[in-house]
């Protein structure tokens, strides 16, 4: 899922400059699961804003609403009545939701309340880690199910650099060396032979480097 975290209150307040009627809009999917921008966090932010506003003599009227998803038009439409008449919508969705909200409610001013961090897995309560970089050309079949693009600090494709020590990455002792994980997994799978092959320079065209990406599926369009 998409993992994000709430921005500091002060930054959100600054982005409201001049607004009086404000909607805090949550998203019930990824950011709700990672407890950054779901219905509960909407309540919390709205409450924080109201209290901060009282202390700062700011005149703002805060209302709350949450859509199941802000990256789907159908779900965004459910917020129509809530958005109406507002000066600013604070979207608590990921960066996708913020933009899609703005597009669907043009010319509404939409500001983010969440920093979108990465695509990750929920390792434990309150703990997430980046597992995918959406590079558009998955290599996991050859790397024992551990991604070298997202999980190696240097995105190396042909094995660990000289900084791998005791299973950890050179950048900090908390970060696992992806290539140690790949090596261990491939060894357990009896597929070490695969790691002796040289992987040629990859095309980053499918990644962000090819420009903003778009997916069209004709079979789904009818």
């Amino acid at each position: 899922m998409i993992v994000g975290e709430r921005k500091p209150l002060e930054e959100i307040i600054e982005s409201l400059e001049g607004a009086e009627k404000v909607l805090v809009a949550g998203c019930g999917t990824c950011v709700a699961i990672c407890m950054a921008g779901g219905e509960k966090e909407v309540g919390m932010l709205a409450s924080e804003l109201k209290m901060a506003a009282k202390l700062r003599d700011m005149k703002i009227e805060v209302s709350e609403a949450t859509a199941q998803r802000q990256c789907d038009k159908e779900y965004l439409d459910t917020l129509k009545d809530d958005v109406k008449g507002k000066d600013v919508v604070i979207s608590m969705a990921c960066g996708i939701g913020v933009q899609y909200m703005a597009l669907n409610y043009e010319p509404m001013r939409v500001v983010p309340a969440v920093n979108t961090d990465f695509l990750g897995a929920n390792l434990d309560v309150g703990e997430w880690a980046e597992y995918c970089q959406s590079c558009g050309d998955c290599v996991l079949a050859d790397t024992g199910g551990v991604c070298p693009i997202a999980r190696c600090s240097k995105s190396l494709l042909n094995g660990p650099c000289g900084g791998s020590a005791d299973g950890k990455c050179e950048i900090d002792p908390e970060t696992e060396c992806a290539w140690q994980l790949i090596y261990d997994r491939m060894k357990a799978l009896g597929r070490l032979e695969k790691l002796t092959e040289i992987r040629p320079p990859r095309s980053w065209k499918t990644s962000r480097d090819g420009g903003p990406r778009r997916l069209v599926r004709e079979d789904q369009k009818a």
Binding site: G163, S164, A165, C177, Y183, L195, I198
Partner: peptide, 21 residues
């Protein structure tokens, strides 16, 4: 370069072989 002291140790000669190849 080659680092004989990097981990995993068993992979280090393999990595050198890749550089040779």
């Amino acid at each position: 370069a080659a680092n004989p002291f990097g981990d995993p140790f068993d992979f280090r000669p393999i990595r050198l072989a890749k550089k040779v190849a």
